[in-house]
Design a protein around this nucleic acid. Structure first.
Lengths: 195, 195
DNA sequence: GCTAGTTTCCTAGCACCGCTAGGCTAGGCT
DNA sequence: AGCCTAGCCTAGCGGTGCTAGGAAACTAGC
């Protein structure tokens, strides 16, 4: 019995090491640099071992990294969200969101750039994918969903355009402030953009 | 002389066929489906011929497709922009922008998902890359640039999240309306979101 | 201790990728 | 006629994701 537990532990630990190696390498050099051979090398085994953990191959590994990313992103946004809605809360959540995207570009890419067959529409969506969206909705005081979708889109676009150098890097704070001003709830401190 | 012109014409026409084949195949099946072998087959030549037109290989072909995309996207946005700022103009420009992204997903991807070493910051940016941005700025009546960057980010994010199925497809019109309401200029018809 | 069966892992190979070196052929020039 | 150049193709490099099949090690029953 202890024998079997030990075996299970070894398998689990290897599972973790695959995901950690994939995430770190991808965040450092992009998903193209994550190859099955390098990944196998990183964990001290050969390619086929990866397929015993992830039969779907590289795509399934990316999906697993993405799912963990959703949990982490939601956790960070939740932590940044203060007691109630308002511009400060929106800015804090936005900054947390963008920070995550900047720190883990490849995880973020796996989360959002791939079609990801699992449903995302608000009905059948898995709870871990839903938590981040709910936090964004709470930040801007939206209960319909449309405003949250637009707010989220703006965050998503901001992170991507910043990463690919399409917007002025030094104006990041102004953009976050502008975004918060545009999406502050009507009854908040103010709805007009600054300046 | 006519001989040389004819030769030049043949080269130019082949150049065009490469770009057209790449764009069509990519928009239909994604850039991963655009391989140098298939591309060479499509134009009736072999692989090395591609490299006489585009020494940088596939990356340079994608860049060329992207540059043409910038021109077309700017043209469409400009055409959609009415006489002056206002919610209707914003909605029209936003719809034109999103339509382009939906019709040419791979062109759009080449335009914005790649790092694209040519500068994008407002100083040394090539005019064809600048035209679309200027149109967006004009639509929302912004002259600073920050609001335009955020507006553009929202459009960018909307298109991408829509394509990857992260937002409810049937709410597209509501999102565009919401976006226009949030970014309508202060002196416009109204600055409050609808509903 | 010995054998049979299972689990675990690696070797070797497939088809495909982007890309390139080198040779063949056809045409213009001297 | 002979050479030179441009244009194109054949063949091949190293790398990719992925998989079939066999070797080795470990477990269980006697």
């Amino acid at each position: 019995m202890a024998e079997r537990t030990s075996r299970r532990q070894r398998v689990d630990e290897r599972h973790r090491r695959i995901l950690d190696a994939a995430r770190e390498r991808a965040d450092a050099d992009g998903w193209a640099a994550v190859t099955t051979r390098r990944l196998a090398d990183a964990i001290g085994y050969t390619q086929p071992v990866l397929y015993s953990h992830f039969p779907g191959g590289k795509a399934e590994i990316m999906l697993a990294v993405a799912l963990e990313g959703f949990v982490e992103l939601a956790r960070r946004c939740r932590a940044a969200l203060g007691p109630g809605p308002g511009r400060a809360a929106i800015e804090a959540v936005a900054a947390a969101y963008l920070d995550f995207g900047r720190e883990h570009p490849a995880v973020y890419e796996a989360m959002f750039s791939e079609p990801l067959d699992t449903p995302f529409g608000q009905d059948g969506t898995r709870p871990e994918l839903r938590a981040g969206f709910d936090t964004l909705a709470e930040a801007i005081g939206d209960d319909d969903g449309t405003a949250t979708e637009v707010f989220w889109s703006a965050l998503h676009g901001l992170g991507l355009l910043e990463r690919t150098g399409r917007v002025r890097p030094e104006h990041r704070a102004e953009r976050v402030a502008e975004l918060a001003a545009r999406f502050a709830p009507p009854s908040g401190t103010g709805t007009r953009p600054p300046d």
